[in-house]
């Protein structure tokens, strides 16, 4: 049976009817049209569906939409302000840290969760923060560089 729920995504509140076995990833992509969070493995291994719930990184493929109620959900679509890229996004562009782009939303949100808590991380801390995000283009070096550069500014 569908349940009615209210989700707060990128500061906007949405009222939805959702089947309880639907994941947050499915609802974001299919009901809200927010396709920034990617479906990779869909089993919690790859990190491409990473979103922030109350500032912490979660795998949206392993969160039931009904359990995301009452939390601040941030997806990659909510990062730029008034058409201006977030500094982490800007740095990814500058450093060529985007190759095929599939892992990028998850990488950037994991980086944001880290930098919000720890604005001056070491390289080891950056790598640890990204340990749940796989890049199949193996472009890790530039991704880490891009985040380290953001942390300096």
């Amino acid at each position: 049976m569908k349940q009615s729920l209210e989700l707060t995504v990128n500061g906007q509140s949405h009222e939805l009817l959702v089947d309880p076995h639907r994941t947050l990833l499915e609802v974001l992509r299919e009901q809200l049209g927010l396709t920034g969070a990617k479906e990779g493995c869909n089993l919690g291994d790859c990190g491409s569906c990473t979103v922030l719930l109350d500032g912490k990184p979660f795998l949206s493929c392993l969160v039931l939409a009904v359990e995301a109620q009452g939390r601040e959900i941030l997806t990659i679509e909510g990062l730029s302000q008034n058409g201006k890229l977030h500094p982490i996004q800007e740095s990814f562009v500058q450093h060529g840290a985007v190759q095929c782009g599939f892992c990028t939303p998850g990488m950037i949100l994991s980086a944001k969760a880290l930098l919000d808590r720890n604005p001056r991380p070491t390289e080891a801390e950056v790598k640890e923060a990204l340990s749940g995000n796989l890049c199949r283009c193996t472009g890790y070096v530039k991704i880490v560089e891009a985040i380290m550069e953001t942390a300096k500014t």
Binding site: G44, K56, P57, L59, E128
Partner: peptide
């Protein structure tokens, strides 16, 4: 334990 996303959940 594991990775940040799994530690959150």
């Amino acid at each position: 334990f594991s990775r940040p996303q799994i530690r959150s959940a």
